[in-house]
Design a protein around this nucleic acid. Structure first.
Lengths: 339, 339
DNA sequence: CAATGGCACTGTAGGGGGTAGAGTGCCAGA
DNA sequence: TCTGGCACTCTACCCCCTACAGTGCCATTG
């Protein structure tokens, strides 16, 4: 591909990203970036159309970049303004650096992604491999309830209210707590279940019911093993390309059917790191040909792995969005690593 | 108002709720419910229009009930099918009865509201009056982090990860925990702040930094003092009346600007209990004249008070939605009371 | 006197035709 | 190799027109 072709493709993409409407040869010529007459530009555009990088909606409209055209732009033509990247990085670190816990961190990450890009921000968490119990604590809450707190090695905290065994004293409860901690520390979930069952059988602790409850908890399919945080859906409604209610509808479905979107995409990038872009039909999500997804993987201590990014219209300023997603992923990784 | 007028108003409302389009005299006559000719029906409809209960979008369209018309229907004409109510009650209790904690309960309540009504379900929680600390626990998590858990008298649980004081042993940490429990038990937040400050000054515990962190936590504007759970926004997109993107937009804004919606409405029903309905412009939310809100108050142990309900199109089957909201509120109250 | 059938009136939805504008492809000429 | 010119094509939009639905009013009827 000749340099001129690349140049013109770049201009078409830029103009299209700015305006959203098909761009014609006249417009580009008047813009004066390339010092060519409309006719010459038309010739080149014709070539680009034959190459499958542009296409015209109809005879008398301008040209719109195809998915492949945008991909070419993202992969080879796009340059990221270092100043802009710097600014973004500041904004991101400002918002993330003092998050109090993992939950808060990820929540802020989504909302920061959303507010910087004006699209919907997504963050998914997945525990890779098996979780270990790092700590288990029983806290008397009332005469009938005990609060059980479990901390896993990935820094996740889970609470549950359990029934308090009859007439058990705070002190005794504390002993049970200490004993269970010895028993279950650094235990995988499966192992924990096994040990709890054994403990129940020996019933040394007069707290059969409590153990039963704990075991039931451990038995429950660990639903939040894969979570998804989303924010800024509303901003998608502001996008002119989503004037058609149908697109919004499928977009929202895709987001609400939580896992599917990210699971699907996360599979693809199992090994790779760095930012990945799925433009239009590349992600093969039905009815979402007008939608692009920009994702990056992040990692933290204790086998925490996740994917984070934004979902928005195909026509987005990739040169802005990519660095934002990239920086956010790096910061989240850093903060989870320091945990 | 004569019986015939009421009868016809009822039929108009029912037909409108079913179809969503203006209903004409011919349709009602053919339906055969009232054994009158179109002309007679027209006369009555004319009266109803003068009374402000119906209105015609234009000369040659049928009639649509006004907000006042719908209100009259809801207040005096509507009858609730007891079988239907029974079925709903079963569905609701099935989904709520085994919720593990408050958070889970309320979350389920929203999603149940949403799935039964096909509109968006809302549940807000507000701590009425001052919260007291019922229990505070410090749990060592790693060599650098301590998990602080606070249980309030309303049964709410909050976690936060704090920095672990240098070289402090588990045993000592436990002592601090016991000591703080004595100090802060049954304390209001303001009082807790005061005591923490005093404690910090005397610095008996060599854990100044930890106390500082705790105090900062207590200082933070208690954001989740008023929470809002929402689910089923997506279903709103399916409603034909929201074909116009603008309505959806304002609806989503109203929902996202969390508190405003419910706060505003909750004020109105400070003292009253039971289900309240706000039809169209009655709630005075801008751009939401086509939207109705059905709410009910619920109460739980420990000063927990909240509002719960659905938000949907003005054209909703009130005879279905009202009992659903009512039952849900009753069940949530019951379960929070038993806590 | 209440109910009805008839009739003229009115506003909307939706289809057809006509026009302005934008952009293209191609070709001849510099 | 680039450019200006020209014929061509397609859309967006405006306007008009008709079909239709439902009304209000009035004279008539039981």
């Amino acid at each position: 591909m000749k340099e001129r072709h690349e140049h013109i493709l770049g201009e078409v993409v830029r103009a299209y990203l700015d305006t959203g409407s098909p761009v014609g040869s006249k417009l580009l010529a008047e813009q004066g970036e390339l010092g060519l007459s409309p006719a010459s530009i038309r010739n080149v555009m014709n070539d680009l159309e034959k190459l499958g990088l542009l296409y015209s909606p109809h005879t008398s409209a301008g040209r719109v970049p195809t998915d492949t055209g945008l991909r070419y732009f993202v992969d080879t033509l796009m340059v990221v303004d270092p100043d802009m990247r710097q600014t973004m990085e500041h904004a991101i670190s400002d918002h993330l650096h003092d998050a109090s816990d993992r939950q808060a961190l990820l929540q802020r990450a989504t909302s920061e992604l959303a507010s910087l890009t004006h699209f919907a921000g997504l963050v998914s968490v997945r525990e890779q491999g098996v979780r270990r119990i790092q700590r288990l604590e029983l806290i008397p809450v009332s005469s009938e309830k005990v609060l059980a707190v479990i901390v896993t090695d990935s820094g996740e905290v889970q609470n549950r209210l359990l029934a308090r065994p009859n007439r058990i004293q705070d002190a005794e409860l504390h002993q049970v707590s200490v004993r269970l901690n010895e028993l279950l520390r650094d235990c995988e979930l499966a192992e924990a279940r096994r040990r709890l069952r054994m403990e129940m059988e020996s019933d040394r602790l007069r707290v059969r019911q409590l153990l039963q409850d704990l075991k039931r908890w451990a038995d429950a399919p660990t639903q939040n093993q894969s979570e998804l945080f989303v924010s800024g859906q509303r901003q998608l409604l502001e996008m002119p390309e989503f004037g058609v209610i149908d697109t919004v509808r499928s977009l929202m479905s895709a987001i609400e059917e939580k896992g599917r979107l990210l699971d699907l995409v996360a599979q693809v990038e199992q090994e790779k790191s760095g930012v990945k872009v799925f433009i239009g039909s590349e992600h093969a999500l039905v009815h979402m040909e007008q939608v692009s997804v920009v994702l990056s993987r992040y990692e933290g201590a204790g086998n925490v792995v996740g994917t984070l990014g934004v979902i928005g219209p195909r026509r987005m300023h990739y040169d802005r969005v990519l660095p934002i997603v990239d920086c956010t992923a790096k910061w989240v990784s850093r903060m989870l690593g320091a945990n």
